[in-house]
Design a protein around this nucleic acid. Structure first.
Length: 108
DNA sequence: AGATTGACTGCAT
DNA sequence: CATGCAGCCAATC
């Protein structure tokens, strides 16, 4: 399936399948894509062009939080986007993975 | 062509 | 609970 697609395209395709109000972790995406590591997922997210249809904001770290990056604005923007989709953040800045965790591409 | 870094994760100390 | 180390692969210098 899509073996001829570049690794990035595969990651993007998977992230694109995350439904609104759900979130997935870097490790989960990496595992679903296969043959790639969480770092590559993060790198791929960073490489997503602005205006793309890839909901990069739905990809968070294993703690259910938003990882710090070079530009602090992106972190705040990501949290705002997720809150707009119904994701709730506690005082610790973590999303409720128990409720909002994405189960998989075909488990909807 | 070799070294460094990066939106990560898990286990060990 | 904080800190450290190893693994993984691509992009950049």
């Amino acid at each position: 399936m899509s073996e001829s697609h570049p690794l990035y395209q595969r990651i993007y395709a998977l992230v694109r399948q995350i439904p609104p109000g759900k979130v997935a972790t870097y490790g989960q995406i990496a595992r679903l894509v296969g043959g790639c590591t969480p770092r590559m997922v993060g790198y791929a997210m960073a490489a997503v062009p602005n205006g793309s249809d890839v909901p990069w904001q739905r990809v968070i770290n294993s703690r259910g939080g938003i990882s710090p990056r070079a530009n602090p604005f992106g972190e705040l923007a990501q949290r705002a986007l997720l809150e707009a989709e119904g994701i709730r953040f506690d005082e610790n800045g973590r999303a409720d993975l128990e409720t909002c965790a994405w189960l998989g591409p075909d488990l909807i």
